[in-house]
Design a protein around this nucleic acid. Structure first.
Length: 569
RNA sequence: CGGGGCGUGGCGCAGUCUGGUAGCGCACUUGACUGGGGGUCAAGUGGUCAGAGGUUCAAAUCCUCUCGUCCCGACCA
């Protein structure tokens, strides 16, 4: 590709509304162009990268035995009413009506459509198991799209669905997909981690997420330094404390804590470490207005875990000030478990505390020297907190660390949630109708592009991993317009590299060298050949890796070999 | 959906408080010089100041409403 015939729409300055580095660089490099909030055009440069991701995904999906399909982006409401999700998906669904006043939505996902396709076309167990995938544009009307294509409303996704007669078959395909996902992310060249995930509202048995590790990631991942254990913090557990609490050595007393509300303030005021303070949170309950959750003050409530408790209302919601006042008779800063007449849930770690401080259910007062059994009845321990760095790994091997990750893939064993609701059945060996069981497997293709940049950039621009780069190599001629020799050599190299099957960007614009260098660095092409009269006099061209600090002079005759060799690494 | 910010040429911004000829840098066009890390000089192109309504002799500026957009939170296979 000649740059004179390729839209290089680079910017020197960072657009003001781009917050994270991938968004900034995608705009500056001219990869994407915003049309509306969360809706972007992929310009020629960006599309090249998107296609590289697609290619890897497609090849590995095919290798895993999945069949490619292309489903409609427009889906009839009836299908969603059948699965019960028309109302449930709510405002996330972009819906509209046609001229006959029939309701449709722009598909945010395709369980309904694929299940419908399968129930119409798959009739015998002999056709199972079967997996189908597509790479297609989805639309989710997020209330707050942000970070460019990282969390866009319209985005490109690979979604795959598998159908089975029984759970064993599902588990086998799930495992095969898991391996395919590892192969895909290995090939992208990104640093990633597979983690156990919460399967969310969608339910189902097993679920794993694939995260590209980056500080800007929206998810927190806990992993063991000594074993394979890794889980989304939403789900991560630690070894539960089962030891008896330490011996009560202090007498309980009521202390005045005027104006001290947060646990940090109370701990500081009472000159106690945070670990000696008990935090009492009131949340909405199922059968009672509120439920009290007890945590060690340095721990954080895990809403996903709490919501699964019977006593706790789903969806999870904190009690409001009026409800707190009604239940505890004080403000949120002074709640404590003693004398509190609501169901109490205590985190394991909270039960291990001794001689601790907590609220006295009276504004401006706390209790200190409190102990379980002696001062308040022991309750059953629950796991309701987020793990923190330093917690022991739940498998007993090593301790947990926490890193940030960008969720780029998610695989589920769905079970029969959709197939049952939509009556997707198949005849088994005995000629009996059986409800199918399903798996689903997603990859945020456009998000992978942004995630790659989050992980690979420097102050000059993007540093594409080889497998995702829009071009393999850039040819930068110095004085192309004036030097016949430079032109000849550059053209020849361009022809040879192209003939070798490489994606070559030949910068034949009438630009100064500095401009070309800056642009090539910004758009992140991994290899660069500079052709100038100065080097040619010695029979050399200049070779530089985008990731390297220094360039090197190499013989012109070796240039093609040098570039292709690097590519095969 | 709650709270906050911002809408002035393609991008980044000043001007708004205190109403009076719409500006700066970058980009873009042309020419000259230049020619290995976003060069210099000169001459240019491009804006109904988000939109509507109002106040006023006069509105980018003051008032009202609407829209867009970004951030925080909530939400989110």
């Amino acid at each position: 590709m000649r740059s004179s015939n390729f839209l290089l729409s680079t910017l020197k300055e960072t657009p003001a509304d781009a917050e994270i580095v991938s968004h900034q660089l995608m705009l500056r490099a001219g990869m994407i162009s915003k049309l509306a909030a969360g809706i972007y055009t992929w310009m020629p440069l960006g599309l090249r990268v998107l296609r590289k991701v697609e290619k890897i995904v497609r090849e590995e999906m095919d290798a895993a035995g999945a069949q490619e399909v292309l489903m409609p982006a427009t889906q009839p409401a009836e299908l969603w009413e059948e699965s019960g999700r028309w109302g449930k998906f709510g405002p996330l669904l972009l819906s509209f009506t046609d001229r006959h006043d029939r309701s449709f939505c722009f598909g945010p996902t395709h369980e309904e459509v694929i299940t419908d396709m399968v129930r119409r076309n798959v009739r015998s167990y002999r056709q199972l198991p079967a997996s189908f995938y597509q790479i297609q544009t989805k639309f989710r009307d997020e209330t707050r799209p942000r970070f460019g294509v990282m969390r866009a409303r319209e985005f490109l996704m690979k979604d795959a669905y598998s159908f089975h007669l029984d759970d064993e078959s599902l588990a086998a395909t799930y495992e095969r997909m898991r391996q395919a996902y590892c192969a895909i992310f290995d090939r992208t060249g990104l640093t990633y981690r597979m983690v156990e995930a919460d399967s969310g509202a969608i339910g189902g048995a097993a679920s794993h997420e694939f995260h590209v590790l980056a500080d800007s990631g929206e998810d927190a991942i806990a992993y063991s330094d000594a074993s394979d254990y890794a889980a989304n913090v939403e789900k991560a557990t630690t070894q539960l404390v089962t030891a008896e609490p330490a011996v009560a050595t202090e007498a309980m007393q009521r202390v005045a804590t005027p104006g001290q509300h947060s646990v940090e303030e109370v701990a500081k005021f009472l000159k106690l470490p945070l670990q000696q303070v008990l935090k009492t949170l009131l949340v909405k309950g199922t059968d009672t207005p509120v439920v009290a959750i007890l945590l060690r003050a340095d721990h954080e409530l895990n809403e996903v875990k709490v919501e699964k408790l019977e006593q706790v209302a789903s969806p999870f919601e904190f009690a409001n000030d009026a409800e707190i006042k009604a239940a505890a008779g004080c403000g949120a800063g002074s709640i404590g478990p003693l004398g509190l007449d609501v169901p109490i849930v205590a985190d394991h770690a909270a039960l291990a505390m001794a001689n601790f401080a907590c609220g006295a259910n009276s504004d401006g007062e706390h209790l200190s020297g409190v102990n379980w059994s002696r001062d308040l009845p022991l309750v059953n321990g629950q796991d309701v907190r987020n793990v923190v760095a330093g917690d022991p790994s739940p498998d007993g091997e090593g301790i947990l660390s926490i890193v940030r990750g960008i969720e780029v893939g998610h695989i589920f064993q769905l079970g029969d949630t959709y197939s049952r609701a939509m009556n997707a059945t198949c005849l088994d060996e005995n000629g009996k109708d059986r409800v199918l069981t399903m798996g689903c497997y997603g990859i945020g293709v456009s998000r992978v592009v942004a995630a790659a940049i989050e992980q690979h950039w420097d102050d000059r621009g993007i540093l594409w991993p080889q497998a995702l780069a829009p071009f393999d190599v850039a040819i930068v001629p110095i004085n192309l317009q004036r030097s016949e020799q430079v032109r000849e050599v550059a053209e020849k190299l361009y022809a040879e590299l192209t003939a070798a099957g490489l994606d070559v960007l030949f910068d034949d614009r009438k630009e100064r060298p500095g401009v070309m260098f800056a642009d090539m660095d910004l758009i992140g092409i991994p290899q660069r050949l500079v052709i100038g009269e100065r080097g040619l006099a010695e029979g050399n061209v200049e070779y530089k890796l985008r990731s390297a600090d220094q360039s090197e002079d190499i013989a012109l005759a070796e240039a093609v070999a040098k570039v292709t060799e690097q590519l095969s690494k």
